[in-house]
């Protein structure tokens, strides 16, 4: 039936009862969305978080892959050849400058890989040192957070689940650690551990005593905030009526932990671990800057910045580059962590 323009007549075709197929279609229209799918959708919609994630991935992958094909090594002093004398023309090169022998090669028509960021005062290619520094900083941040995660989750959930006396004792210890000045303890502990740790002959030697002591220090200090968070979560979850309902149906503790507590805590754990990484990277850089970080000649972003202080007036780029990389990593990890939190656990926002 054709309607006249502006007529108020109702089109009866719009009121035919839905056929079973129509109903099927309608009920399938809104697929059940899981908590995880929803979260990922929200995360991708957040431009800042998505960009940060992209940055983190690019930086991580390149810090892993670049050393494989880069023609220079991080500890390689380009002016020093076996048996020959030291060619000082390789030290302190500006970006895209070449040493004397390299210039000759270029004149002879050979190709020489450029020193993108120049070289340092020992004639080492600065770019590859920055890449290695990034690698170390990321690794320290990552492993420190894993240690914090394991310690914090275990202790926090013990305190939260058993409560009462155990909780009281653990929380007093947490309070004490909280009240200590972080940096002072970190510096003291890493000095002491550096002296007492004997790694000779173990596989840990390759990593270096300083990094190991740094990881231990992180573990010892930073589990407190994680465990507080987890304890709070478990305490509030324990009061939820669905836990009571499971108990009323005769569920054992293991089932309650597996089916209710862990799935309801996991997003908080992941988010705060993610936010812990930049924290650790920042502290690592700070310690290396103070000379308490990685063993030379291994670079980290902090020690690179620290070394650059000597020639800050002539070669400011050597300070600026690692500083920018630290900023980029810390900033994008923080922004990504914030995005994760907003996407998966908006309640956590203060």
């Amino acid at each position: 039936m054709k309607n006249k323009p502006f007529s108020m007549q109702v089109n009866l075709d719009d009121f035919i009862p839905a056929s079973p197929e129509d109903k099927e279609y309608l009920s399938k229209m809104r697929p059940s969305s899981t908590f995880f799918k929803d979260g990922v959708k929200r995360l991708l919609k957040n431009k800042v978080a998505a960009t940060s994630a992209f940055f983190i991935i690019v930086i991580t992958i390149s810090s892993i892959l670049i050393p494989f094909f880069w023609p220079y090594e991080y500890e390689e002093m380009l002016g020093v050849t076996q048996g020959g004398f030291v060619d000082s023309s390789y030290s302190n090169l500006k970006p895209f400058e070449y040493g004397e022998t390299e210039q000759q090669k270029i004149e002879n028509g050979e190709k020489v890989f450029p020193h993108i960021f120049g070289t340092d005062n020992h004639g080492r290619d600065y770019f590859i040192r920055v890449v290695y520094g990034t690698r170390i900083s990321l690794a320290v941040g990552f492993f420190a957070s894993i240690i914090v995660l394991l310690l914090g989750v275990t202790i926090g959930s013990v305190a939260g689940y058993f409560g009462e006396k155990i909780d009281l004792i653990i929380m007093r210890i947490v309070d004490i650690i909280y009240s200590l000045p972080d940096m002072l303890v970190i510096i003291l502990l890493s000095v002491v551990l550096k002296q007492t740790l004997n790694l000779e002959g173990t596989f840990l030697q390759a990593i270096g005593g300083n990094i190991i002591s740094m990881l231990i220090v992180f573990g010892l200090l930073y589990w407190v905030s994680m465990s507080r968070l987890i304890r709070g979560q478990i305490l509030s979850l324990r009061e939820q009526e669905y836990i009571l309902s499971a108990k009323a149906n005769g569920a054992k503790a293991s089932r309650i932990i597996r089916k209710h507590l862990i799935p309801n805590c996991i997003s908080v754990v992941i988010i705060s671990t993610c936010l812990q990484i930049p924290n650790a990277i920042f502290t690592e850089s700070f310690l290396s800057f103070m000379g308490l970080g990685v063993n030379a000649p291994m670079p980290s972003l902090g020690s690179l910045a620290s070394d650059a202080l000597n020639g800050i007036y002539s070669y400011p780029h050597r300070l600026v580059i690692p500083a920018i990389v630290i900023c980029l990593i810390v900033l994008s990890l923080n922004l990504f962590g914030d995005g994760l939190r907003d996407a998966f656990d908006p309640k956590l926002k203060h």
Binding site: S32, F35, A248
Partner: peptide, 27 residues
């Protein structure tokens, strides 16, 4: 058995309806 007061805190937000209703059967 028991029906709880708070319809929000009495259902686990990470479980589907069929898992919630089936929980006593599972246990």
């Amino acid at each position: 058995t028991m029906v709880f007061q708070d319809p929000y805190s009495s259902l686990d937000p990470r479980m589907t309806v069929s898992d919630i209703i089936g929980e006593p059967l599972d246990i």
